[in-house]
Nucleic acid binder design. Structure first.
Lengths: 253, 253
DNA sequence: CGATGTCGCGAACGACGTTCGACGACCGAT
DNA sequence: ATCGGTCGTCGAACGTCGTTCGCGACATCG
């Protein structure tokens, strides 16, 4: 259950790496930035961010640990490149109609799946945005969902950020729950059933009337303390409804 | 800019600690769980989660590192108690009217401020909920905002979770931006101005028409790449609008 | 064939959480 | 008053981490 994360290395170094500016390393061995990044992503996917260390990556590549530093300035910059790389995975096809709402919904689902494919993304604190080529391409593509519907440019950005923010939060809760399952060996459902009697005691209906009633009802309905997939869907529809009212307001006729 | 986090220690140990079950340590020195937790919170507030180590806490208390383990099973459980403790800080007064919307808005603002008072909260991955006394009291109090407006219990939980999730995400972006400022010595605005020309080059209007236009407009409007406070406010209003439609739908008359 | 520079990487530093076990102060019983 | 045992205290040490330093080896060029 232990995790450690980091991100946002030296911006100049990161940018050079992201856009592959600067001399391409020739390499006596068959090492390269791309091989290192690919290996690091595979490792993080398979064993989590906690298992991602420079030593492990080097070991996986059959190479001395310090050799990585010839190609990559440090771990923080490596994480930046890893992020930009996986952001390149989201689909780019034009959706088959559906209007802005359908397209925003599709964007949300693509990101939901991306986060579940690479859960470690959510454990990397970026601080400042990672402005790699794939991140920009993704931003451009996703903005297309809200283009030409009567919003100003700033409003387009706000709307997209709102949806993406919701997806990130819901995915984080989903991923953390899954990791807790793996770490404890108990599914959320098993854990809930094991602890439900205790909660009954802790949630004294006299002191906590709302919590007692709602907690019990929600727990029983979801079969656990929370249901990330349901929270994602419920929140997405409410947010899209809110955006719909906003869009309607912007073009009154 | 490096950070490491962890959370979700042994549930049984955490619960015993949270509810102060189990024998109270007498202590030859004046050490106690409360003193340790208070010191740890102060340290995390002042220097960030990255500076929170068992050694530093012990040092601050003028005590050997290993003495802490007499009172606290480990760092993960300490984090759990720290979380429950600061969750006890949110106000509990009944709001002066305003209906469910005003009360939900107030809940959102209280949490927004709480996260800014203790930014490290956002860097602790909890996995499974920390069911301490203060967390339950907070849940109970906040549910009051959506009680008696025609929602089922499960819907009350979903609505509250949606709002709290938005606050958490917005606060996370706000806090990460602030930390990036501290780490780099540049405000978001300065950073934006320093890098704006570069972005102009990277955001090729031919390849990325939407990103080029919107990115420039949003950057100029916010004076930076993003404006967390604005994102919080904008998202909150959209979400409350969406909830309003939902509530209206539930009681059709 | 020698000089120059760069790649590869082993050793080491200072952090981390935590296990182990030694020390010693206290309490109760005799 | 003395002894035994319990329990708080905490130093040493293990295995981990990212990264600095510097040295040996090789490739390229003059």
């Amino acid at each position: 259950m232990a995790m450690e994360y980091s991100g946002g290395g030296d911006p100049a170094r990161s940018l050079a790496l992201l856009w592959r500016t600067g001399a391409v390393r020739k390499g006596r061995s068959d090492l390269s930035v791309d091989r290192i990044v690919r290996t690091a992503i595979e490792l993080a996917d398979a064993e989590g961010i906690g298992a991602l260390s420079m030593r492990r990556v080097a070991g996986q590549l059959g190479v001395g640990t310090m050799s990585l530093y010839t190609y990559v300035p440090g771990k923080a910059e490596l994480l930046d490149v890893m992020l930009d790389t996986v952001y390149g995975e989201t689909p780019r096809e034009e959706p088959a109609g559906g209007g802005w709402r359908g397209r925003l919904e599709q964007v949300a689902r693509e990101n939901w799946e991306l986060y579940h494919r690479h859960p470690w993304m959510l454990q990397v604190a970026t601080g400042r945005a990672v402005l790699g080529p794939n991140v920009i391409a993704k931003y451009d593509h996703e903005l297309g969902a809200v283009a030409g519907i009567g919003l100003t440019e700033v409003e387009m950005d706000s709307v997209l950020s709102l949806v993406l923010g919701h997806v990130e939060g819901a995915a984080r809760r989903s991923v953390e729950a899954a990791q807790a399952e793996r770490a404890s060996g108990l599914t959320d459902e098993q854990w809930w059933q094991a602890h439900a009697p205790l909660f009954g005691k802790l949630m004294d209906p006299d002191r906590f009337p709302n919590a007692a009633k709602v907690g019990a009802a929600a727990g029983e309905a979801h079969g656990s303390a929370q249901n990330p997939a349901h929270a994602f869907e419920f929140g997405l529809q409410r947010i899209l409804d809110g955006i719909e009212a906003f869009v309607r307001d912007r073009r009154p006729q």
